[in-house]
Design a binder for these strands. Structure first.
Length: 212
DNA sequence: ATCCCGAGGG
DNA sequence: CCCTCTGGAT
């Protein structure tokens, strides 16, 4: 089966499984989505959701966070792990947004990548979900794993995987696509003991029924 | 012990 | 390509 055809089925079936890809859009602003995405690194969304209400009440926009002390940011996000890196980067990002983008989260790839702590995965999430720009596909550990299992790519480097995936999917609604892929990887095509018996893609998966 | 919706640096 | 950063859940 050709990869293009396989990708079409992936999109169609996952759209059925996740009919309302709104949870990535639960955030009120690009700023909230950016912060939540940064916090989600190596951390479950449950723990992210535990700290975001307090965070956004205290620092609702880049202007307010830009004036914070790193110490208080660390305390606020401690439970999400990597808190020193995350707080330093978020603080510097907020200050840069105030200084160079008039307090608004930028909406271009190059401007997002220039923010400390923001690489392609985070930039793609923000571009596709906050701004509706279909510039790239967000490749995290989940997407990396499932794309390989489904035979959509043989690459291991996330940037190569993204280049392999982009031509396979119609270049629209990538916000929803990014959401589907991450959810599916987390909930079904799990790293250990994947739920193949419940998988909507088992019949097109080269790995279905193949031991280990 | 091991893993989790990454990014930066060597 | 490798390593490090982190707490919390299991």
């Amino acid at each position: 089966m050709q990869r293009m055809h396989r990708a079409g089925i992936v999109l169609e079936r996952l759209a059925q499984r996740y009919p309302r890809p709104a949870s990535a859009l639960q955030w009120q602003s690009p700023w909230e989505l950016l912060v939540a995405t940064v916090l989600s690194a190596q951390c479950t969304d449950q723990r992210v959701n535990a700290v975001t209400p307090g965070f956004f009440h205290r620092w609702p926009d880049p202007e307010s966070l830009a004036q914070a002390e790193q110490e208080e940011v660390e305390q606020a996000i401690r439970s999400t792990g990597f808190f020193r890196n995350k707080s330093k980067n978020l603080l510097a990002t907020a200050q840069r947004i105030v200084k160079e983008h008039e307090g608004q989260v930028p909406d271009t790839m190059s401007q997002l990548l220039a923010l400390p702590g923001v690489a392609r995965k985070t930039a793609n999430i923000v571009l596709s979900n906050a701004f509706g720009h279909n510039e790239g596909i967000a490749v995290d550990t989940h997407v990396k794993r499932l794309a390989n299992r489904l035979g959509l790519t043989d690459a291991k480097d996330p940037n190569h995987i993204e280049q392999d995936l982009m031509p396979l999917f119609p270049q629209n609604q990538w916000g929803a696509l990014n959401h589907y892929l991450v959810l599916f990887g987390r909930e079904v095509c799990k790293a250990r003991s994947p739920l193949c018996s419940q998988c909507p893609l088992y019949d097109i998966c080269p790995r279905y029924g193949v031991p280990s």
